[in-house]
Nucleic acid binder design. Structure first.
Length: 133
DNA sequence: GCCAACGTTGGC
DNA sequence: GCCAACGTTGGC
């Protein structure tokens, strides 16, 4: 079982949207590194944090699960299907994440990291899961 | 709205 | 294959 983090702007697609539709093809990723993750690495059952980006309070707001592994979206680009799992009662903001020592290596915090699909280690996942539960 | 950091494009 | 110009991301 692997863990990931998916970024989404809330105006484009929010965790509430995902809760409504339940399952959503995660499309529109146009970056080769992210494409490779979608195509090669994400497996059914993997869990993904839902990250709200480009807004007043960027935060990890919920959790979803891969229910269909990588398939062609269009042309050379790939997507996966994700299913709503939960919306955290207590979301964890970027600001909070930055303060947690054991999370300082998270890809999310690395300078200039714009990757919209990124890996999360099981330790990072456990740390965050404990906070938001 | 600004701007730093990246990625991509295209001329040479 | 280099690199300048441009576009995008995303925090602030």
């Amino acid at each position: 079982m692997k863990y990931w983090l998916l970024k989404s702007e809330s105006e484009t697609f929010s965790i509430d949207d995902l809760e409504k539709v339940k399952v959503e093809p995660w499309t529109g990723v146009r970056n080769y590194q992210a494409r490779n993750i979608l195509r090669d690495d994400m497996q059914v059952g993997d869990l993904c944090f839902f990250y709200r980006s480009s807004c007043k309070v960027p935060a990890i707001v919920g959790l979803c699960e891969v229910v269909k592994a990588g398939y062609v979206e269009v042309d050379k680009w790939f997507c996966v299907d994700v299913k709503f799992v939960e919306k955290f009662k207590k979301e964890i903001t970027l600001e909070e994440i930055k303060k947690i020592k054991s999370l300082e290596k998270m890809k999310l915090l690395q300078k200039g990291s714009r990757l919209s699909v990124q890996a999360v280690t099981s330790q990072e996942f456990a740390t965050i899961a404990k906070i938001v539960e």
